[in-house]
Amino acid sequence: MSEIVTETSNNGIQNFEPIVRYQKVSKSFGDTEVIKELDLDVAPAEKIGIIGPSGSGKTTLIRMLMTLEKPTSGTIEVDGELLWHKRVNGNLVPADEKHLRKVRSKVGMIFQQFNLFPHMTMLRNVTEAPIHVLGLSREEAEERAITMLEKVGLKDKLDQYPRQLSGGQQQRVAIARALVMNPKIMLFDEVTSALDPELVEEVLAVIKEIALEGNMTMLLVTHEMQFAREIADRIVFINGGTIIEQGPPEEIFENPKHERTQNFLRRFNKKN
């Protein structure tokens, strides 16, 4: 199955100190190996669009970075620190909860299903973690939250509950909730896949705005090819748990070298 040799990252961005580094990362669920010895370096502030067929492992890839899935083998580094391991006397040992929480604080994630807290108003959804995780005062947390909710265009919905909002609005609140924690790296897991088509635009516009601000590292798993092309510095095509091809968007979309990439994009264009 794995006759493909993964190309190492010769994609224009070179000589950087990676903010995220996957090294020989594998992940199996039972007997199924979804990620196979994958290597990937991400530069600070880089925007990476991760594309590939469903079941290719692209969501698992970012879920491991959010510590939602534990790699079966290999290491992941975030900002120079091992994520799932600790170095004790030169040996790698599994990280404890304390270490995980420390490294994890640099990462945030937006989910396909929004995952807002249904028992909290929009404002409380956004202030919950700043108050109870960062230890901010309620006033300070609310001030920050309102700034963020304003940024996503939802300042007038503070006292509403998730059920009272459209999917697009919910997802924008979820973005504000993640932003307020000020992560260096933001992960987007097919964030528009659960939305009605007419609501996709408003969410993409918000993400684009964040991307244009520049300093946040972003990994976007997406099926929105046009969008990925617009905002990504690099496209990574994954199939069967390995990176088949990667490079600048123009190159991948217009001139894909690998047969599997060509097939995937052809099928994709046909569908749309």
């Binding site: 959010m66 510590t67 939602l68 909860e97 929480r101 994890r104 604080s105 990462v107 945030g108 994630m109 989910f111 299903q113 995952n115 807002l116 807290f117 249904p118 028992h119 919950e128 973690a129 109870h132 995780v133 979820a174 909730r177 993640a178 924690m181």
Partner: peptide
């Protein structure tokens, strides 16, 4: 739903905080 716990983890909440403020209030109902 598992997504609630995952959202808590993504916000770097501790397991006990997730239980107390996210899961239990919903489970109560």
């Amino acid at each position: 739903p598992k997504g609630q716990t995952e959202a808590g983890i993504a916000l770097n909440m501790s397991p006990s905080l997730i239980m107390k403020r996210i899961i239990l209030p919903q489970a109560m109902l």
